[in-house]
């Protein structure tokens, strides 16, 4: 490369040279960025962990029981305990922060298209507050784990709902900026994830319970109070997918603290959820019903269980899940 020194450039430069220089700089930088990002989008899912998330589920040789949902699901099921109490060894949990019905439908679609055999039993998180929210950008790990075709679907789906400049910037952030930390730290990150995961569930952090005062002050966090049409469509899509691919679906609303479920808006959304499922003949379990929702020590915040709460809930739901899987398997035979 020819070295151009400042003194040589000084003699002849005009503002037009400046524009040319700045344009060349912008163009070259953007081409490099575009190349790097394209390469990332096409290959990063290969770096995704095989013991957690969507790629983890896709890597399972057999899936009798799949639990799918958001951080609620992650913090509600102890996978080791569940396996021990149900005796189902071919189970797996997929969870991404803020994953809603629309995201879950996308993942189940991908699994149905990719796997030779779909999961036989799927427990879908029925978090009522999520029903009122328009589909939004998800946990960047979901985007990282998604194969290119699913990535495209995520982008299209988001862009269809958010055409504002802010939405475009968010999308740019997701596509260009997110997931790079996981790639850079890949060997250590994957090792840490391996140590902290069991069948997709997390075993890493201890989440303490709340104090009585903090528990009393909890409030529901809601983005919408009426069922969002996209979420309703996604719910129906999941049920259609189950019918088409012959897998059983069970909807479980994991427990929430009393101050939150007492909110009439949450109650209304919960009722809407139940009506939608009843209309399609789907099974719904309200996690609050058989859980001590007044006990602060079992919750870590307004919508997640503490570590003790997770053990309690898993223990309580195991029998139901065992019976459901057994009945499903028997009817299939």
């Amino acid at each position: 490369m020819e070295i151009v020194t400042s003194n040589e450039a000084k003699n002849e430069a005009t503002p037009r040279h400046g524009w040319f220089y700045a344009g060349k700089l912008a163009l070259v930088s953007l081409i490099v960025l575009l190349t790097l990002v394209t390469l990332k989008l096409l290959t990063e899912h290969r770096l995704a962990p095989k013991n957690a998330g969507l790629q983890g589920a896709l890597a399972q040789p057999r899936l009798d029981l799949l639990l799918i949902g958001s951080s609620h699901t992650r913090k509600s099921y102890d996978m080791r305990l569940l396996e021990r109490e149900t005796g189902i060894s071919s189970s797996f949990l997929i969870s991404y922060d803020n994953a809603d019905l629309s995201t879950m439908a996308q993942m189940l679609d991908t699994m149905a298209a990719t796997l030779d055999r779909c999961p036989r039993h799927v427990v879908v998180e029925a978090y009522s507050a999520m029903l009122g929210r328009a589909p939004d950008l998800q946990d960047p790990r979901y985007f990282l784990d998604a194969p290119p075709s699913l990535k495209l679907r995520i982008i299209q789906s988001y862009f269809a709902n958010h055409k504002s400049p802010g939405g475009v910037l968010d999308l740019f952030d997701l596509v260009v900026n997110r997931g790079n930390d996981e790639i850079v730290s890949y060997p250590v990150y994957i090792h840490a994830l391996k140590m902290a995961s069991y069948k997709g569930g997390r075993t890493d952090f201890y989440f303490p319970g709340m104090t009585a005062e903090a528990f009393r002050n909890l409030q529901a966090k809601l983005n919408g109070t009426d069922p969002d049409p996209s979420q309703v469509a996604a719910l129906n899509h999941i049920l259609d997918l189950a019918a088409l691919n012959h897998f059983q679906v069970l909807f479980i609303d994991t427990p929430m603290p009393r101050p939150v479920i007492s909110d009439p808006r949450i109650q209304a959304l919960k009722l809407d959820f139940q009506k939608l499922l009843a209309a399609r003949g789907a099974i719904y379990i309200d996690g609050d019903e058989r859980f001590p929702v007044d006990d602060p020590s079992l919750f870590s915040d307004s919508n997640h269980l503490s570590s003790e709460g997770r053990t309690e809930f898993t223990h309580g739901i195991s029998g139901t899940l065992k019976a459901w899987v057994a009945s499903g398997s028997a009817s299939a035979q």
Partner: peptide, 21 residues
């Protein structure tokens, strides 16, 4: 400071680092 090529390369690399990280 005396090399436009170095400055060009550094600016482009920094732009990419900012966008990615």
């Amino acid at each position: 400071n005396n090399s436009l090529n170095y400055q060009f390369f550094a600016t482009g690399a920094l732009f990419n680092a900012i966008m990615l990280f």
